[in-house]
């Protein structure tokens, strides 16, 4: 299984589309300029979405190389293959986390404001969003192929933009302060359960043969 984990992590980094990277970088810079003290948070959300998308995009590389055909000839069972993929997703959270810490540091220095709440929420979203994204898209990929996951990924972007709008135009954190910690805990537990359930569904999907 460690060979497959290496393969998925290597694909994650080596198959990054330069265009997607430029778009993500541009969006992050725009967000940081326009969102004031929440710049670090919004940049974290954007990076987390990018990490989630990239984990799904790596399946495009698998399909292009007809990797699954070769993998089926290996001495690995479906559980090892799928678990390897999910472990590699967890490993790539390091990118999302590191980016979140960096963006919040820049934002804190730029606006001379250190808000523990914003940092905490940023770290939480940097973990929750990629897990949520891949938890939904990976079973779709294993059952219906990469294209359906790609379509679903685009649909999932819409609520993210509503979230951004809520913080830009609404009361922001001040309306949520009392319950935000419990919301994050609940969201974290739900995403963890979803992630595990997603893995089981993916194993069943991977096992289906013609």
């Amino acid at each position: 299984m460690k060979g497959l984990i290496y393969k998925d992590i290597a694909i994650f980094f080596k198959s990054i589309d330069k265009k997607m990277l430029l778009i993500a970088a541009g969006a992050i810079i725009l967000l940081m300029v326009n969102t004031g003290v929440y710049a670090g948070l919004f940049a974290s959300v954007m990076l987390a979405m990018t990490v989630g998308m990239q984990n799904v995009m790596s399946f495009a590389s698998d399909e292009k190389a007809s990797w699954k055909k070769y993998q089926l000839a290996m001495p690995v069972n479906a559980v090892s293959v799928v678990t390897g993929k999910y472990v590699s997703v967890v490993c790539t959270l390091a990118v999302s986390l590191a980016g979140s810490l960096l963006f919040n540091l820049i934002s804190s220095v730029a606006f001379r404001m250190f808000d523990m709440m914003v940092w905490g929420v940023s770290v939480a979203v940097s973990v929750i969003i990629p897990l949520l994204w891949t938890g939904v898209c990976l079973p779709l990929t294993y059952w219906f192929g990469f294209r359906s996951a790609q379509t679903m990924g685009l649909v999932a972007v819409i609520p993210m933009f509503y979230l951004v709008k809520y913080f830009e135009d609404g009361a922001g954190f001040s309306a949520m302060t009392n319950s935000i910690f419990s919301c994050i805990v609940v969201a974290g537990v739900m995403v963890a359960v979803l992630f595990l359930a997603s893995m089981i569904i993916s194993v069943i999907g991977y096992n289906r043969k013609k």
Binding site: A10, I11, S15, S61, K64, S66, W67, Y70
Partner: peptide, 12 residues
């Protein structure tokens, strides 16, 4: 096993 095409990713 060897198939009729190379199944390794181009980036490797």
């Amino acid at each position: 096993v060897v198939f009729d095409e190379c199944n390794f990713h181009d980036v490797f």
